[in-house]
Deep mutational scan, measured.
Amino acid sequence: AQASVVANQLIPINTYLTLVMMRSEVVTPVGIPAEDIPRLVSMQVNRAVPLGTTLMPDMVKGYA
């Protein structure tokens, strides 16, 4: 199964992502692939992302 990117903490709206904020986990539904974690660093979330939430492409500015 493919691992997705999951929030490792509460990520406030407009926060620039860093490695410590994200982890990879096999979840349903599938979100942003874990292999894209390096690409996500320094990208901004466009909403608050609670701890344990799967990151979806529409949550990250400029990802989709």
Rank of each mutant, 00 (worst) to 15 (best):
A1T: 10
Q2P: 13
Q2T: 11
Q2H: 15
Q2M: 15
Q2G: 09
Q2L: 09
A3M: 13
A3I: 11
A3Y: 14
A3C: 03
A3L: 13
A3G: 12
S4V: 02
S4A: 03
S4M: 02
S4W: 02
S4G: 07
V5A: 14
V5G: 02
V5D: 01
V5Y: 01
V6N: 02
V6C: 03
V6W: 02
A7L: 04
N8S: 15
N8F: 06
N8T: 13
N8I: 07
N8L: 07
Q9A: 14
Q9F: 10
Q9M: 11
L10T: 12
L10D: 14
L10C: 04
L10Q: 15
I11M: 06
I11G: 00
I11L: 08
I11E: 00
P12E: 14
P12H: 08
P12Y: 05
P12N: 13
P12G: 09
P12T: 07
I13A: 15
I13H: 11
I13N: 09
I13T: 10
I13D: 08
I13V: 15
I13Q: 11
N14H: 14
N14S: 09
N14P: 01
N14V: 02
N14L: 07
N14A: 06
N14I: 02
T15G: 13
T15P: 00
T15A: 10
T15R: 04
T15I: 05
T15W: 05
T15Q: 14
Y16F: 11
Y16T: 14
Y16Q: 13
Y16G: 13
L17P: 02
T18H: 15
T18E: 13
T18Y: 04
T18P: 00
T18S: 15
T18V: 05
T18A: 11
T18G: 06
T18M: 15
T18D: 11
L19Q: 10
L19P: 15
L19F: 14
V20M: 10
V20T: 15
V20D: 10
V20R: 12
V20E: 15
M21C: 02
M21V: 05
M21K: 06
M21Y: 11
M21H: 09
M21R: 03
M22H: 00
M22I: 10
M22W: 01
M22D: 01
M22T: 02
M22G: 00
M22L: 07
R23K: 14
R23V: 10
R23L: 08
S24I: 12
S24H: 14
S24E: 09
S24V: 07
S24A: 08
S24N: 09
S24L: 07
E25H: 13
E25Y: 08
E25I: 05
E25G: 13
E25A: 11
V26F: 13
V26Y: 12
V26H: 08
V26A: 15
V26E: 07
V27R: 15
V27C: 03
V27G: 04
V27M: 05
V27P: 02
V27N: 04
T28H: 14
T28R: 09
T28M: 15
T28G: 11
T28F: 04
T28V: 10
P29V: 04
P29Y: 03
P29F: 03
P29C: 03
P29H: 05
P29R: 05
P29E: 11
P29M: 04
P29L: 05
P29A: 13
V30T: 15
V30C: 03
V30S: 11
G31E: 01
G31W: 02
G31C: 03
G31Q: 03
I32H: 01
I32R: 01
I32Y: 02
I32N: 00
P33D: 06
P33E: 05
P33W: 09
P33Q: 04
P33S: 08
P33H: 09
A34M: 04
E35M: 06
E35G: 15
E35P: 07
E35Q: 14
D36A: 10
D36R: 07
D36P: 00
D36M: 09
I37L: 14
I37A: 14
I37V: 07
I37G: 05
I37T: 08
P38V: 07
P38S: 05
P38E: 15
P38T: 08
R39I: 14
R39C: 04
R39D: 05
R39W: 05
L40M: 07
L40F: 02
L40R: 00
L40I: 11
V41L: 15
V41G: 03
V41R: 05
S42R: 06
S42C: 04
S42I: 03
S42T: 11
M43V: 05
M43C: 03
M43A: 10
M43K: 09
M43R: 08
Q44S: 11
Q44H: 04
Q44T: 08
Q44N: 07
Q44M: 13
V45D: 01
V45A: 05
V45Q: 00
V45W: 01
V45C: 03
N46C: 03
N46A: 12
R47W: 10
R47D: 10
R47L: 13
R47E: 14
R47Q: 15
R47F: 13
R47I: 12
A48F: 15
A48K: 12
A48V: 11
A48L: 10
V49S: 02
V49K: 00
V49P: 01
V49W: 02
V49A: 10
P50A: 11
P50N: 09
P50Q: 12
L51I: 15
L51G: 06
G52A: 09
G52V: 01
G52Q: 04
G52Y: 06
G52H: 08
G52E: 06
T53Y: 06
T53M: 10
T53A: 12
T53I: 14
T53H: 15
T54K: 04
T54I: 11
T54R: 11
T54N: 02
T54Y: 02
L55M: 09
L55V: 05
L55E: 01
M56I: 07
M56L: 06
P57M: 09
P57N: 12
P57W: 08
P57L: 10
D58E: 14
D58K: 06
D58P: 06
D58V: 15
M59G: 04
M59K: 02
M59H: 12
M59T: 08
M59A: 07
M59D: 14
V60S: 01
V60E: 01
V60I: 14
V60Q: 01
V60L: 07
V60T: 02
K61W: 12
K61V: 13
K61F: 11
K61R: 15
K61E: 12
K61T: 14
K61Y: 14
K61Q: 15
G62W: 08
G62Y: 06
G62I: 04
G62V: 05
G62N: 13
G62K: 08
G62T: 07
Y63M: 09
Y63T: 05
Y63F: 10
A64N: 05
A64L: 14
A64V: 13
A64E: 10
A64D: 10
A64I: 11
A64S: 10
A64T: 12
